[in-house]
Simulated scan of single mutants.
Amino acid sequence: MTHPTRPGLQPERTSIAWLRTSLALIANALLFLRWGVSHPEHGIVLLTLSVVICL
């Protein structure tokens, strides 16, 4: 049995997917930032990577 499609759902799903992707990127950037601060020998690389991910 097929369900009727509602025309407003596709933009909503796309918006939710972009939100989920951006939250994952921000979480990874924060993890890189935290690890970069606690490991100064790799700090500049990880700090740069976290800034690039946030952009």
Rank of each mutant, 00 (worst) to 15 (best):
A17E: 14
F32L: 15
L19E: 04
G36S: 02
T21M: 10
I53D: 01
I44G: 09
A29Y: 02
T48V: 05
L23E: 09
L55Q: 08
A29M: 02
G36V: 02
A27H: 03
W18T: 04
G36I: 03
L47N: 00
E12V: 12
I16K: 02
I44F: 13
S22V: 05
I26K: 02
L49I: 01
T48H: 04
L31D: 04
P7A: 15
S15I: 06
R13A: 15
G43N: 09
W18K: 12
A29I: 00
Q10M: 14
L9R: 07
V52A: 14
L46G: 02
C54N: 03
Q10N: 07
V52E: 03
L47Y: 02
T5Q: 13
P11K: 01
F32V: 04
E41G: 06
E12W: 11
L25P: 00
V45L: 09
P40H: 07
L23K: 05
G36H: 01
V45Y: 06
S38I: 10
S38P: 01
P7C: 10
I16F: 13
E41Q: 14
T48W: 03
N28K: 08
A29C: 05
L19N: 14
W35F: 15
T14Q: 09
V37K: 02
M1D: 00
L19H: 12
I16M: 09
L47T: 01
S50G: 14
V52S: 09
L33K: 07
R34S: 10
M1R: 03
W18S: 07
L30Q: 03
A27N: 02
R13C: 12
L49M: 04
T5N: 05
L49Y: 07
S50C: 11
M1W: 11
L33M: 12
Q10W: 11
L55Y: 07
P40Q: 13
T21G: 11
V45K: 07
G36K: 01
A29T: 03
P7K: 03
Q10I: 13
